[in-house]
Design a protein around this nucleic acid. Structure first.
Lengths: 343, 343
DNA sequence: TTGAAAGCGATACCAT
DNA sequence: ATGGTATCGCTTTCAA
């Protein structure tokens, strides 16, 4: 629009500029901007209006340095590609914005050097860290704790971990799923678990198996797969072409379940749910599609994210010492990949 | 493990500690860590080893403050939920790590207050900004430019925007798609575009229509949809139950195409590709699934991300003045949602 | 080449 | 309640 070219870097307004304009000290400007600081309403008003006139934006980096509180929250991003994680990220970003926090991403893809990730976390002085997915070891979390980086373990339940855990009640959900399958005439059960994950996956399977054994039903066949469509696909073929093909498969994750459904239908020519019931976990968007209409267990992710944010906000003041475990109830989402209920 | 509780906050090692240990000045430590600074190899060696012994991690926040270079790259996260964006995010995070940059997320969901987003961008002194998706207006990008935040517009081509654009050659891809459909016996064409996007979508459609008109084929019917499965679904129903149902539909996005396929098959009982050819853009993972096997146009996202990183690295030193446009060639991914080629 | 000292832009402690 | 000043941990002149 304008024909002038900006030669020199634009000078950013600082709190000193605001102080001069308002005729107060620079410390007063700082106080005016911080709601917790006491200041006469009149002065605060004055400072705030000068700040607005000058279009002043405080320097969060400088604030972080002097207050030792960056308001930056780290989040590790895992390898599992699914719209579920994007949704989570979006939710976190949005709610953090509202809470005055900023999300910074850290790469933890397979074979990533976790020590370097820790270095980065420290270098950027993240106030806390959210760990989602399975890309992260208990050992790594322990190192974070040593470095006094409080961590929230999201969506995965590792026993005795030095982190606050926010997770689905996996055992209870496993039971629910088994009950549903049992109520819908399943005869031979299988469970596809995730090789990478010994915790939440195991809990889901535990609930699943426990319910079955309580009903006097033989233990389910178990297959291991990675968290992917392709591995679910392959696992399904192993199960369904094996000696004792199941007529009900519970998958530890929706993305695996989609692979199972496609293998069953398009590779093996089975009908779902007539020949095979399939059920997953997470309630990802893809499962809603007509092509799948996957019955699944939904996570109350909004409530889980809210709980995380509350925790982060609490941590902003006082460093945490004891870690807690918050379990959330999952809900059955009935669609068409499981035979209909007995009435 | 250990029974001692940490009472006081752990003291972080600073460059002064390293300086003392190495018996040099603090400025020398700074130089030793910065490869561009000149320093006798012997001294550098000495400093580096002391740093390692003390397990020193430089404070990126302090560095950002004094050097006015935070190495933080902002990225706006849009509303469109798709595994494609997660994949992109993962790639960016990984490659930025390698380049010594950190990704910070900014929320630009619908009806977000973009002025507040800009404030945050400035407050955290991001070195540059990557804008992906459609959540961002030309006006907003202009404001960023005013604030001297260099921006990369990724995956969308807005004319005369004050940003460096990294994008698919949408027009050329549109032509390719039209040609494929034409070669595979299509008779009546439709194009489903995105209402929110007047730029890349239009270019894709332009290429598509141009090819058809060059072949003397009547213009395609055009439907508008949002970037979602559901809207694609609805648009397909409108088209296919209309007066002149097409036998080939090009969708501006894969996610829309999946909705179209499901509507055609599960709602209207059509066979794909026998009754209807469907083609999309982006090559998202979901399209690979057997349930869809969607023919599509793939973006060379790795090359596009690499190009972005190169740009960011170049920008780290010298502020950019002129903006450029980098177009990337898309490739046809032939699967089963389009009738087979004439031999 | 290296060291000393001056910022960077806030917060926080100590006075008043 | 407000102002003055030290401080956070670096980078970057400026001297030597």
């Amino acid at each position: 629009m304008s024909s002038e070219e900006d030669q020199r870097p634009l000078k950013r307004i600082t709190s000193i500029d605001v102080a001069k304009r308002a005729g107060v000290s620079q410390s007063t400007v700082s106080r005016a901007l911080n709601p917790n600081s006491k200041l006469s309403p009149a002065l605060r008003e004055k400072v705030l209006s000068s700040a607005k006139e000058l279009n002043y934006r405080p320097n969060a980096i400088a604030r972080g340095m002097s207050s030792r509180n960056t308001h930056i929250i780290g989040l590790t991003i895992s390898d599992t590609v699914s719209s579920y994680y994007y949704k989570l990220l979006k939710l976190f970003t949005k709610k953090m914005h509202e809470a005055g926090l900023q999300l910074m991403l850290f790469n933890t893809s397979e074979h990533a050097d976790m020590d370097r990730v820790l270095d980065r976390l420290i270098e950027y002085r993240v106030d806390s860290l959210i760990v989602e997915g399975v890309a992260v070891s208990k050992d790594f979390i322990g190192k974070c704790a040593e470095q006094e980086i409080p961590v929230i373990l999201f969506g995965r339940n590792i026993p005795d971990v030095k982190a606050h855990t926010i997770c689905l009640d996996d055992v209870a959900c496993g039971r629910k799923v088994a009950r549903l399958l049992h109520q819908t005439y399943a005869e031979s059960y299988a469970f596809i678990t995730a090789k990478e994950d010994k915790d939440s996956s195991r809990n889901r399977m535990t609930g699943f198996s426990d319910y079955l054994s309580e009903q006097g039903i033989p233990s389910p066949q178990v297959e291991g797969a990675g968290f992917s469509y392709e591995e679910g696909y392959a696992a399904a073929i192993r199960l369904l072409t094996g000696e004792n093909p199941p007529d009900a498969i519970c998958c530890v994750t929706d993305i695996i379940a989609l692979g199972v459904m496609d293998a069953a239908r398009h590779k093996l020519g089975l009908k779902i749910p007539e020949d095979l019931s399939v059920i997953g976990f997470d309630n990802i968007d893809e499962g809603k599609m007509d092509a799948f209409s996957l019955t699944t267990v939904s996570q109350p992710i909004e409530a889980m994210v809210d709980a995380s944010i509350e925790l982060l906000k609490a941590w902003q003041r006082n460093t945490p010492t004891e870690y807690d475990l918050q379990l959330f109830e999952g809900g059955l989402v009935l669609r068409d990949s499981v035979r209909t209920l007995k009435n």
